[in-house]
Design a protein around this nucleic acid. Structure first.
Lengths: 120, 120
DNA sequence: ATTAGTAGTAAACAAAAGGTTAGTAGTAAT
DNA sequence: ATTACTACTAACCTTTTGTTTACTACTAAT
């Protein structure tokens, strides 16, 4: 009696490959958290650092650079303002991640409920 | 002129929280790759190590333990066989990750196409 | 004059994650 | 007798990731 598979066996390596491509861009502890903050209206450096609990300026800075390189945000310096302000604006391309973020958030919510109900 | 937000501002921290919960279970370089292999019919230790390119036995072993702790697979020893065989079987709970994996795989595929078309 | 806000960077260090090598133990094939 | 397969694990080392502290430079408020 063999268990049914959720994904077809022949598609396995393609599946792994695509997920790897996605994780190359989104992987790590911070990138998705940063994107969610951006997609929720946060734009400035210090604002992001305050919203995303626990991230240091050095890491935030380097993650933002990588996200920009991957076309998920653009950096805009508002030199007219004082103090000089920098805005990190998500691109249209970043909105294609909506389904990914929603799927992860939905599952995370379900999982939390499961954990809590088990700990009785 | 303010950019529309993809996620509502008030839901931002809840969103981040849920994604964090999900990443706690699924985060890291290997867990999703392992789950995809399991969901595609791979069951044995060495089989998994061969399918998932680049993973070492030490890491595979420890990741499998964590996935078991989180209720995503069960470990079954087939002591009747020789050599002794161990099967890692995904649980029903693991199938709730289908949407997450599909969303990531879809996006990864789109992203690869985008990268290739840009490099012309 | 001092403090605080803007947005970072450099250096030094610590922690986490992952890789490499060798080894266990039993069986079966050559 | 040697090799190979099963499924790991221990010890050690490297790489990646992240933290802390101090600092830049300008402006505005106290």
């Amino acid at each position: 009696m063999k268990q049914k598979t959720v994904f077809s066996e022949v598609q396995c390596s393609k599946h792994i490959g695509s997920v790897e491509d996605a994780l190359y861009v989104l992987g790590g502890k911070w990138k998705l958290r940063i994107l969610i903050a951006l997609l929720s209206g946060q734009t400035r450096f210090n604002e992001l650092q305050r919203t995303i609990k626990g991230i240091s300026a050095r890491v935030l800075s380097s993650e933002l650079k990588q996200l920009e390189l991957n076309g998920l945000l653009k950096r805009e310096v508002r030199a007219d303002l004082t103090p000089v302000m920098v805005e990190y604006i998500y691109t249209d391309y970043a909105t294609t991640l909506k389904e990914v973020v929603s799927a992860l958030a939905d599952w995370g919510q379900k999982h939390r409920k499961k954990i809590i109900s088990e700990d009785v």
